[in-house]
């Protein structure tokens, strides 16, 4: 006999992600899911952002790593809550895992949660974890062909951080090719060119993040 099923295979993950989103909406917390290759500079970008914003807002991070607590230790120095998820081989975070991490945090005293996903351009883009926005972190040393090779991430992302722009003179990275292939996939996607060795380059990203935090939390504009 043939049975019509028509069921979404990832339904369980989507449902859990929706629960997380509802919870964070009730608590007025912005959650940003950073996705990028290993070595794209996700942890350092979070560190640089923490230096700028941790006195103004209450920030926590959830660190997804296949193994080790190296990144979590780097972030603990900033005296913010850090929850480490070791995935033991799994190449992405899913909503059930993220929910457990979120429930370890004091949600009544937070404005922003950074989730640093497992370094990978493919699988993390597949899994909704209840975030407000996915940020694609690409770095110039990886090459300008990444959007074309990993289209789903650039379709799902709400913002692109193009990191390590200071290295462009030493690579064959063509920023025009990168930008136009992002445009082909997602014409309205903002791209911020950043470098962690140039504090000024982070302004656009920091402004965007502050505005998003304010929109989500209702915190008045700090003077």
């Amino acid at each position: 006999m043939e049975i019509k099923v028509m069921k979404k295979v990832m339904q369980a993950n989507i449902e859990k992600a929706t629960e997380i989103r509802d919870l964070l909406n009730r608590k007025n917390i912005l959650m940003v899911n950073l996705i990028g290759s290993p070595g794209a500079g996700k942890t350092l970008l979070i560190e640089k952002t923490l230096v700028r914003l941790k006195e103004k807002y209450n920030i926590a991070t959830i660190e997804g790593d296949i193994a080790s607590n190296k990144d979590a230790l780097r972030l603990q120095k900033y005296r913010i809550p850090v929850v480490l998820i070791n995935t033991y081989g799994s190449c992405h975070l899913d909503s059930a895992t993220v929910e457990k991490a979120i429930l370890e945090l004091d949600l009544d005293s937070l404005d922003l949660i950074f989730v640093e996903n497992v370094g990978n351009l493919v699988c993390p883009a597949e899994f909704d974890i209840g975030e407000d926005i996915k940020v694609a972190v690409a770095s110039t040393a990886e090459g300008d062909d990444k959007p074309e090779k990993y289209p789903l991430l650039f379709r799902e992302a709400g913002l692109v951080l193009l990191n390590k722009v200071d290295l462009i003179p030493y690579t064959n990275f063509d920023i025009k090719i990168f930008n136009s292939s992002v445009r082909k996939l997602n014409g309205l996607l903002p791209i911020y060119e950043v470098s962690c060795v140039d504090e000024n380059s982070l302004e656009g990203w920091i402004d965007w993040l502050e505005e998003s935090i304010r929109n989500k939390t209702g915190i008045a504009v700090p003077i």
């Binding site: 006999m1 043939e2 049975i3 019509k4 099923v5 069921k7 979404k8 295979v9 990832m10």
Partner: peptide, 10 residues
């Protein structure tokens, strides 16, 4: 999408 459309069995 990733959808299970049909199942056949006995």
């Amino acid at each position: 999408e990733i959808i299970i459309e049909t199942l056949e069995g006995d």
